[in-house]
Simulated assay, not measured.
Amino acid sequence: MRRAESIYHRSVVYLLFLILLLPLAATLLYSLASSWSASVLPDGLTLKWYAALWSDARFLAAFGQSLLVCFGALTLSLVLILPLLFVVHYHFPKLDGLMNILILLPFAVPPVVSSVGLLQLYGSGPLAMVGTPWILIGAYFTIALPFMYRAITNNLQAINLRDLMDAAQLLGASTWKAAFLVVLPNLRKGLMVSLFLSFSFLFGEFVFANLLVGTRYETLQVYLNNMRNSSGHFNSALVISYFFFVLMFTWAANRLNRDRPA
């Protein structure tokens, strides 16, 4: 009976994975097809679409600009959120409920509405930043904020921050020395999870990038949208390259986050 249940459960899981992988496998096969029109299988396989993609200077520029904006937003988030979380959880723990409400406010306003407001505020005047990466970094910061706040908050609650700080201070460490040398290493997993989730979301963000900067600072998703009328094989190669990069980033994050034997 147990063996039958085990086989049933595994079959359901494998079927689910198969359903999820089929569109990706079809996209991969289409990106490798020289032509595919009136037959079940492609007429031939080729790498020319990948060669055309990775030799396109416009694609490489969009890829690099997406990375620059994402890493800039994540760096800004870390610099601002880590000290804030430490102060709230260590000195003002009662403010955590209020912070949870404030952190979720960016999700309450649709990106299209936020973009219109940002265009009005920063479209002209002394702080004219529309069309520059700076406004995109600021907008991406608001997107990453809830992911990073919740992940790091959960990690701080798991390590019992106050007891850890009190133990470090009893051994002679100052508050900031204890924070950097004791608390921060214990937040490694929370930081890695928050950074990966935020990066994966920001790297595929389209609404803010398209409305606030467009082709003036073309990111990868804007480039993909602008190339929608080109060859389907070329676009499939672009999608697979994007997926492969995120997959490799996930693998690297898991490797870095793996506990090392003592």
Rank of each mutant, 00 (worst) to 15 (best):
R2F: 05
R10I: 09
L15C: 14
A25H: 14
L32Q: 02
S34W: 07
S37Q: 02
A38F: 09
S39I: 04
G44R: 13
G44S: 14
L45P: 10
L47H: 12
K48C: 06
A52H: 08
L53Q: 07
W54T: 07
W54S: 06
A57L: 06
G64A: 03
L68Q: 10
V69T: 08
C70G: 03
L76C: 01
V79M: 06
L82Y: 06
L85S: 07
V87C: 06
F92Y: 15
G97Q: 14
L98G: 11
I101E: 06
I103R: 08
L105R: 08
F107N: 04
A108M: 15
S115I: 00
G117T: 02
L118I: 12
L119C: 05
G125N: 03
M129E: 08
T132L: 11
P133E: 03
L136W: 03
Y140L: 07
F141D: 00
M148W: 01
N154S: 13
I159F: 07
D166R: 14
L170Y: 09
L171R: 12
G172Q: 12
L184D: 02
L187I: 01
R188E: 11
R188C: 10
K189R: 10
S194I: 09
F196Y: 11
E205N: 14
G214D: 01
R216L: 00
R216Y: 03
T219N: 04
L220M: 12
V222N: 01
Y223I: 04
N229H: 03
G232R: 12
G232T: 08
G232Q: 12
H233M: 01
L238I: 04
S241N: 09
Y242F: 15
F243V: 13
R255Y: 11
N257E: 09
D259T: 15
R260Q: 12
P261V: 11
P261G: 13
